[in-house]
């Protein structure tokens, strides 16, 4: 084949006004441009498809703000207890989950519900992380590789949900399933090790046991799952849906 191609090229008489060396130059330039552009185009194409494609499993949460009550913080304390987080509230305390109270100034309607890492399909923390320490698992859970995190805090700057925290002090009495490292970023892990054991995250379990059953956990891509069925039943939304980040945490009544 190669030989044929060579013959064809060598037999062809150069057309008038067309310098073969110039043609070679164009070919070379074309090749160089293709070599430079291909990885970029591939990357861009991949960026467009990541998250948008339907994977068999995408874990997510549904939070019903019409059930969640203002005084209840069962989900928050469960997270703190399970993951070994401090209960002290100071400006530099890490908070993986928090209860927010949102009031519409036009109507006076107030809602209270938990906000945590939204495990976005188009996660800004994953995009901006210079080392790839922030990553998204195929099942949709967004995590931080503590070994690779350099502590630049760009993910804290980039997260629209204020969901990331930075470990600013030595952490003692860590839980083996929730390792934390001074100088690294962290956030809700969706209790990934519990999920791998077939259990729900600690906050969801606590809400079911001590709260108002306002949280549902499950596989968003399984039509038979409770979460998928509920999402199909009534209107829900995501926080800052306008940003197009495709969060894995959905809310009802906000």
């Amino acid at each position: 084949m190669t030989g044929d191609r060579t013959d064809l090229v060598s037999d062809a008489a150069p057309e008038e006004g067309h310098d073969p060396s110039r043609r070679r130059l164009f070919a070379l330039a074309g090749g160089a441009v293709a070599a430079v552009l291909t990885p970029g185009v591939t990357l861009f194409a991949r960026t467009l498809t990541v998250g948008s494609g339907k994977t068999p499993v995408r874990y997510g949460l549904l939070i019903d703000s019409t059930r969640c009550t203002q005084g209840c913080d069962a989900c928050v304390t469960a997270c703190q207890d399970y993951n070994g987080l401090s209960k002290k509230i100071t400006p530099d305390t890490a908070q993986w989950i928090r209860k927010v109270t949102v009031t519409d100034p036009q109507t006076g309607l107030t809602r209270s519900f938990p906000v945590m890492c939204q495990h976005c399909a188009q996660a800004t923390c994953v995009d901006v992380c210079p080392t790839g320490a922030s990553y998204r698992r195929p099942d949709g859970i967004v995590l931080v590789d503590k070994h690779r995190c350099i502590g630049c805090r760009y993910c804290l700057m980039a997260c629209p949900y204020k969901a990331r925290s930075f470990v600013g002090r030595v952490v003692k009495d860590q839980k083996p399933w929730a390792p934390r490292g001074k100088g690294t970023a962290e956030a809700c892990t969706m209790c990934v090790e519990r999920v791998m054991d077939g259990k729900a995250p600690a906050c969801v379990t606590a809400c079911a046991e001590r709260g108002k059953k306002a949280m549902v956990f499950g596989n968003l891509h399984d039509p038979k799952s409770e979460i998928a069925q509920k999402l199909a039943q009534f209107p829900t939304t995501t926080i800052r849906a306008d940003l197009g980040l495709e969060p894995g945490v959905h809310y009802r009544g906000i």
Partner: peptide, 8 residues
């Protein structure tokens, strides 16, 4: 556009 409060 909303009034928001939290421990964070």
């Amino acid at each position: 556009g909303m009034i928001v409060h939290s421990s964070f």
